[in-house]
Design a protein around this nucleic acid. Sequence first.
DNA 1: CTGTTAGCGCTTTCAA
DNA 2: TTGAAAGCGCTAACAG
Lengths: 339, 339
Amino acid sequence: MNHRQHRPTIKEVAIRAGVSPMTVSRTLSGGVNVKLDVQQRVLEAVAELGYHRNENARSIRPGHSSGLIGVAITNIANPYYSTFALGVEEEAALSGRRILLGNTGEDAAREAELVGDFLGRRVDGLIVVPADDAFAHLANSQSQGVPVVLASRRIHGLDADSVVLDDEDGAYRGTIALLDGGHTRIGYLGNRESIFTGRRRHAGFVKALHERGIEPDPELVALGQQTVEQASDATRALLANPTPPTAIFCANNRNAIGALKEINVQLHTGRPASEFPELMSFDDFELAELSPVPLSVIDHDPRALGRTAARLLLDRLEAVGEVPSREIELPVTLRKRVR
Amino acid sequence: MNHRQHRPTIKEVAIRAGVSPMTVSRTLSGGVNVKLDVQQRVLEAVAELGYHRNENARSIRPGHSSGLIGVAITNIANPYYSTFALGVEEEAALSGRRILLGNTGEDAAREAELVGDFLGRRVDGLIVVPADDAFAHLANSQSQGVPVVLASRRIHGLDADSVVLDDEDGAYRGTIALLDGGHTRIGYLGNRESIFTGRRRHAGFVKALHERGIEPDPELVALGQQTVEQASDATRALLANPTPPTAIFCANNRNAIGALKEINVQLHTGRPASEFPELMSFDDFELAELSPVPLSVIDHDPRALGRTAARLLLDRLEAVGEVPSREIELPVTLRKRVR
DNA sequence: CTGTTAGCGCTTTCAA
DNA sequence: TTGAAAGCGCTAACAG
């Protein structure tokens, strides 16, 4: 490895090109008021040294921003969030910005820590899928002029731009579809009630049942599964119920996949698929169509969610003066019987 | 929103605490040689103002690093790479570092652009899944003392730390398993030969066939599918062959999933599953066990790949002096008949 | 068209 | 134990 072990500075480029640092700076900023042949020499020196402007040095000057967007999500490995991150990255790249990515693992303390770090790195703004309703760290960010966009989940009491899904309506429609299919004993696998989407999707589920005069059986409701494995365990418990559900509403892809895996395992014992519950999944996911039991999905576009979140942030960064915060709710589509 | 619209500086904290900026700085760096009660006052001022040290300003001082790691991967939305990114993030976080994430979309020009940007932001190092064999931008990075770790793919001619999978051996063993299962007409869905893993996995495939005296039929080999949809299209073509393959080797999860989806579609026409080819997938993936046809996977751990890549980088950053570059090859596990 | 000066926020060095 | 000065890399503002 050719170790010059040194990052060239503007001064070195200047010396090599036989000009002052200002001329280098001007050349790199578009070249206004620099003779063409001088620009040429400067650019040659830049290329020879492999020089890159020190963005950190630039960003400490007044008026200049870092061009960074801090993104705090709960779990990058979940395809829903990674696709979301892709959307953010794409949209951010359009304005030449980069994303600083942090994983919170649904841990509020970790989230606050990450946000503090992001602020220290002078991000232009934050895109956060909040782990819970605590928001002192986010309000602090806003108070310093660093806008916050909430994605997927809102926080009660925090005035910020946000983009979420139409959770309640989706869950409601999905549940109604199950009820219309003749199911009356419907299980529920979902997130904790303390999580925005958990609350909303469960509310939509309950609303549909109530509308048909059905009281949800607490024995068929399992909340708080964060992993596929936990979801499989919860499904096993549901199936072991003396009067098992004939359908299960899965409030996210982790829970739907866990349910599917457990059902698939139990199918190998020889019981026919028709004896297993039909599934409704909030979130589409890859290979859903291979389900051995009837499966419908409440579909939406996590990439668009990411792009929208980034758009909200960029719009605010470009806006002049005070702008009221925008709350966007993206629609979801019920796709019946993808299998 | 409470808009102070201003990021407090060390000076303001100092004024509020009635001390000099240096005392604030010292307090925040551990508090050596600062009286306890003074530290107390400083920390109160910090909390009141929501102050965060400007890391960008810190990083321009000699000796100080940015604490950033630039990560350039080809597609965050691919679960393989998002899990990889999770591993990198986790390991980087252990040393208090953050990741700057960029998506290359398999585009070498975009990769070079990203790397240039990362260098401008003074990353401590780079972790790259290279889009192709061009490496001027990476050598440039190294020459400036910014180490590069290649992940998943190596580049011929670039001396850098790297962690890859045992591609050829995995593909070889997978293919042998198919041959042992009695297959002689085996299709291949994979990446372009210009991509490191594409070359190696294909080589392993061919090696196994040759060992059994079989010449691969060019009509059964489809290279270059990057998306699930393209893989489905390629599968359709394979299945339409007058003498279709009885097994298909899928060199990555995109291709395996595409094959699975196409087979699933064709199953709905009524032809029995037994008439469709058995599958071998390099990469495990979620719900593989739901495959309607026999499916084996060549499994590995993308998260460990990410952690290892980060570890290689961090080790080099912590090392003193010249250290020879390390090339790690992670093992893969053949799992027969996950379904 | 080009260069000099000054200062962004921070911390190392030196002085008190 | 504290502070003042100087300078990291860069560029607006001013001078020439």
